[in-house]
Design a protein around this nucleic acid. Sequence first.
DNA 1: GAATTAACTATTGTCGACAATCGACACAAC
DNA 2: GTTGTGTCGATTGTCGACAATAGTTAATTC
Lengths: 218, 218
Amino acid sequence: MNEDLNAMKKSLGELIANALKQDIFNKNMEFGERLIEAELATRFDVSRSTIREAFMILEQEGLVTSKARKGTFVSNFTKEDMNEMLELRLIIEAKAFINALDRMEEEHYLELHSILEKMKLEADKGNWNILFDLDMEFHQFVILHCGNSRFRKLYESIQVQLRVYLAHLNQYYSSPISFYMEHVELYEALVHKDKQRVEKQIADHINYVEEKLIRQKN
Amino acid sequence: MNEDLNAMKKSLGELIANALKQDIFNKNMEFGERLIEAELATRFDVSRSTIREAFMILEQEGLVTSKARKGTFVSNFTKEDMNEMLELRLIIEAKAFINALDRMEEEHYLELHSILEKMKLEADKGNWNILFDLDMEFHQFVILHCGNSRFRKLYESIQVQLRVYLAHLNQYYSSPISFYMEHVELYEALVHKDKQRVEKQIADHINYVEEKLIRQKN
DNA sequence: GAATTAACTATTGTCGACAATCGACACAAC
DNA sequence: GTTGTGTCGATTGTCGACAATAGTTAATTC
């Protein structure tokens, strides 16, 4: 438990990185906007070193890009970036689900099912925000049990970048129910340990997202 | 071309990161060894800020891990880490090769073939070092033409970490000729645009590496 | 003697200042 | 009009110092 407490003590850099991340999520910053160290330093009332620290963290998460002697900029995600990320997410998730399928115990399937039930509730209410959170929870739960910690890190990083891109769009999925149903199908495929079906469902699910994204912007 | 020149102007931090990377490759540092900022600062005759910069770069490449207020350490790769990385590499490379297969033009295949010829020469001489470089070149060439820039970055990062792990082993592949032949088979599968065969060859190739790694250490 | 607390030391976290570099603009040469 | 050159302000790169913290050893208590 000491470990947890230790991990909770965040450095100033981390705190500022989180603050900036929220700004990006909330569209307080434009794609490609330049971030000036000194300016942020006075804004947050810290030194430039601390801002640099925050930049490094954000750069690792792919939210920001810094060019030597040119400054650091909010990452400018294009339609092509989205395609690349979804392609990556597809192969990772497919493999992760197929691995998880054999590794998950009865109790894990039950837990997954309970996430589905929550999803149904929120889908009926048309509550997109919570639905997206549950979506994350569902996918991350499976990936957590795939036996490859690198998959998890990669997946998280992709999700964060996708979320930024999505935040800059206004239109969401048309039907919360169909969104929910996709997860049900995925779950069914897992329970029946049908690897081919899992693979197909993952591909369908991601293509579904892809279509919604590509239809707009650029 | 100005871009290139610009990219060549390396900051002190980058230079030091490279120096440290070489130290790690050359086994001048042990797995898990703690790196002390002040110590390195005096050794390289720079300030601690610069060493920190170098640490960030190395951390992004996965060669070093830093824990808040505890310091930064040379990454300690275990057999499990290797398995995870090879699993990741497998799915990325499989997808990359299959995509590249349709995207590469006649000239690209010729270039690939020329790499193979160089490999044959070095394989006959039993020159492992150059053979490994050519192996890298072969795989990276294909991945460069898969149409997904994120694949390339990921692959590079995996390769670097693998190389560190390998550097800490003493035994290499038994036969340079069979190592070369694997690439010939991969090439043949590509030329014939036989996706299934490509997939199988990639899996075989990586399993081959895996066996060699897992037999030793731990 | 074991456990707890209190210095002490080594090391990282944060800071503000100076140096080097970039981009923009003005000016000169052709 | 275009191209090159020099200057200037804005911004990043690098620095060394001080503050805060973790790990270690010594002192204290029971």
